Amino acid sequence: MESGSEKNVEAVMDGSKIRDLVESDEVFNKFVERKFEELDHNRDGKLSPQDLRPALTDIGAALGLPAQGSSPDSDHIYDEVLSEFTHGNSGEVSKSQFKEVLSDILLGMAAGLKRDPIVILRIDGQDLSEFLKGPGFEPHAISVFSQIESTGTMLDYVESALHNFSVDHGMPPPSDPWVTSKVIEPALEANASCLEERNVTQEGFVESLKKVIESIALHLKEDPVIVAHSGNTFDGSSIKRLLSNKYELDKAMETTWKSLPKDRHERMSKEYLRVAYDIVAPAAGLPPYGAVNQVDEVVNEVFKMVKADEAGSCNEAEFNKLILEILGDIMLQLEGNPVTVSSNAVVNEPEAPTFLPAASNHGESE
C-alpha cells in the first residue's frame, strides 16, 4: 500500500498474526478459552445467541460492515455468521463449536488482510507541510477552486476545499467528526480574519487555503493523528483467476452448494442465491453483499440480468450454471468499470477489534 510516507507507517495488519494464532494449537486453545469465558456470562459452558452478540459486533467491524441494525443489506451477513455458530438453529453453542467456527472466520479474515492489508498511519503534519511547500500544491488548489460551487465567503470555499485533501497529502480524513472538531475547526478559527472575505478570487483562495493548511500541519505536529488506511480495487481479476482454476472453482462451488438448504428432492430455492453469492464471494475476491455499495450495484444488475431473483428452484447442475453465469457477468462489468474503494478511519490506538490479534509492527509483516 502506497498511501502515506513509509516513515509514518506505525503498523501493518496483514493477517500474519491471525494465522500464527490459529495455527498454534496451544496458543489458539488458550485464546478460545479466554474469549469463551468472556462471553459465557452465566458460566454454564454454553453460549446463547445473545451471548454471541459481542463477538458478532467485533467480527462485523473487522469485515468492514456497518454496525448491526444500521443496514438491512448487511444485517443478513450478521445473521449468517450467527447461523454458522448455531448451525442454523436457535440453540446454544458449545466450546468446540465456538472454536471451529471462530477458526474458520479468523482464517478468512487473515486471507482478506493478506490480500488487502490495513496500514496504520501516523499523520504528524510533516507530509502535509512538504506538500504545501512543493510544486504540487498550487496546481491542486487551483483545480479544487475551479470545481467549487459556492457564492459564500472565503470560509465556505476553504471548508469545501479541505475535503479534496487526503492521507496521500498528509491530511487526516476531514469528514471524520473528531478531525473536524479537533483539527480543522481550530485551524479555521485561527485564520478567521482572512476567511471573512466575500469577494473570493482564485489568488486569495490559494493564499487563505495555504494559511489554514499551515495551521493544520502545525497542530498535527503537536498532536499527531493515528489513521487506519485500507484500499482495494475490484476489477474482476480475482474472479478470472478463480474461473481459470478448475480445482479451486470446483471446491468453492461444492462448498457453497453443501452449505445451502435443499428440499427432499435436493433442489434449492432460488431465494438462497444471494446467500450463495456471499459464501462464494471470498473465493472470487469479492466483498460480502452490503459492504461496498458500488459492488452491490453491479451484483444487483447482474442478478436482474440472469433473473436470479425470480421464484423457482434448481438442482446442483442448474445452480452451478447460474453461479458461473453470475460470476462471469460480474467479472465483465468490473473489467469494464473497476470499483476502487478506500477507507480512512481515525483510531485512538493502532489496535484491532477484540477478536483480532494485535497488528504487526511495521517491518515484521509478511
Rank of each mutant, 00 (worst) to 15 (best):
1 M>S: 13
1 M>Y: 03
4 G>A: 02
9 V>S: 04
11 A>M: 01
11 A>T: 00
13 M>S: 10
16 S>W: 08
17 K>G: 13
20 D>F: 06
21 L>C: 13
22 V>Y: 09
24 S>Q: 09
26 E>M: 13
28 F>Q: 02
29 N>W: 00
32 V>A: 11
40 D>C: 11
41 H>E: 15
45 G>C: 03
46 K>W: 05
47 L>R: 12
48 S>I: 08
50 Q>L: 11
52 L>E: 11
57 T>L: 09
68 Q>W: 02
68 Q>C: 06
69 G>E: 04
70 S>A: 11
71 S>Q: 02
71 S>H: 03
72 P>G: 05
73 D>K: 01
78 Y>T: 07
78 Y>M: 04
81 V>A: 14
86 T>Q: 12
86 T>E: 14
86 T>C: 12
87 H>L: 12
91 G>W: 10
93 V>K: 07
94 S>I: 00
97 Q>S: 15
99 K>G: 11
102 L>I: 03
102 L>G: 10
105 I>H: 00
117 P>Q: 05
120 I>R: 04
121 L>M: 10
123 I>D: 12
125 G>A: 09
125 G>F: 05
125 G>I: 04
126 Q>H: 08
126 Q>Y: 11
131 F>G: 13
134 G>M: 09
136 G>Q: 04
136 G>S: 11
142 I>L: 15
143 S>K: 11
152 G>E: 10
153 T>C: 02
154 M>N: 06
164 N>T: 08
166 S>V: 01
169 H>V: 14
170 G>P: 14
171 M>H: 10
174 P>K: 07
177 P>D: 03
178 W>M: 12
181 S>D: 14
186 P>A: 11
187 A>C: 14
187 A>Q: 11
194 C>G: 07
199 N>Q: 09
200 V>M: 12
212 V>P: 12
214 E>V: 13
217 A>H: 01
219 H>V: 02
220 L>E: 02
226 I>P: 01
226 I>H: 05
232 N>Y: 04
232 N>C: 07
233 T>I: 10
240 K>M: 14
242 L>E: 11
242 L>D: 12
243 L>E: 14
248 E>L: 09
248 E>F: 05
251 K>H: 06
256 T>S: 12
257 W>D: 07
260 L>K: 08
262 K>M: 05
264 R>M: 05
265 H>I: 01
267 R>N: 15
267 R>Y: 13
271 E>D: 06
272 Y>L: 10
275 V>E: 15
277 Y>V: 15
280 V>Y: 05
280 V>F: 11
282 P>C: 14
287 P>N: 08
293 N>W: 01
298 V>W: 08
308 A>P: 15
309 D>M: 07
314 C>H: 04
320 N>F: 01
323 I>M: 15
325 E>L: 13
328 G>W: 10
330 I>W: 04
331 M>V: 04
333 Q>H: 12
334 L>R: 07
334 L>A: 09
337 N>G: 03
339 V>M: 10
339 V>G: 02
339 V>H: 05
342 S>M: 14
343 S>P: 05
344 N>L: 00
345 A>Y: 06
348 N>I: 01
350 P>Q: 04
351 E>G: 01
352 A>S: 15
353 P>K: 01
354 T>F: 04
357 P>E: 14
360 S>E: 12
